[in-house]
């Protein structure tokens, strides 16, 4: 199964979870997603998702100047983002539970 398709629906949730864990800048978020086992996601998808979540008010953004190289734009979660994360996590848990039951029943039959 192509996990890229599966990931599309839950990339927001994954990005929110990563940023909720700790503020991060663009590639930092990509790296942490990969480290968590989400390998298939494209860099650009993560950056676009970060921008969209920021635009919708779920994330905050601030610039940290760097002595060497360009400045880094950090993203942090805010109250609205946490609320979104909570709601999506609940949805995911229910959905995952449903799928697990469905597949378990199918497998057992």
């Amino acid at each position: 199964m192509d996990t890229t398709q599966l990931l599309k629906g839950v990339l927001d949730l994954a990005v929110l979870a990563v940023v909720a864990d700790e503020d991060g800048y663009g590639y930092d978020v990509v790296r942490r997603l990969r480290a968590a086992g989400i390998e298939e996601v494209g860099d650009a998808s993560v950056y676009g998702t970060l921008r969209r979540l920021y635009s919708s008010g779920a994330l905050t953004s601030y610039v940290v100047p760097s002595d060497e190289g360009p400045h880094r734009k950090y993203y942090g979660i805010n109250a609205q983002g946490r609320a979104m994360l909570g709601a999506q996590r609940k949805d995911w848990d229910e959905f995952a539970g449903t799928m697990a039951r469905l597949l378990g029943t199918e497998g057992g039959a």
């Binding site: 800048y25 663009g26 590639y27 860099d43 921008r51 635009s55 360009p70 400045h71 880094r72």
Partner: peptide, 19 residues
């Protein structure tokens, strides 16, 4: 808006040894 920090992100990705 979309490409702010794009260079930094690309450079970071290139510099990532685990990649």
């Amino acid at each position: 808006d979309l490409t702010d920090g794009l260079e930094a992100n690309l450079a970071d990705a290139l510099a990532d040894d685990r990649r």
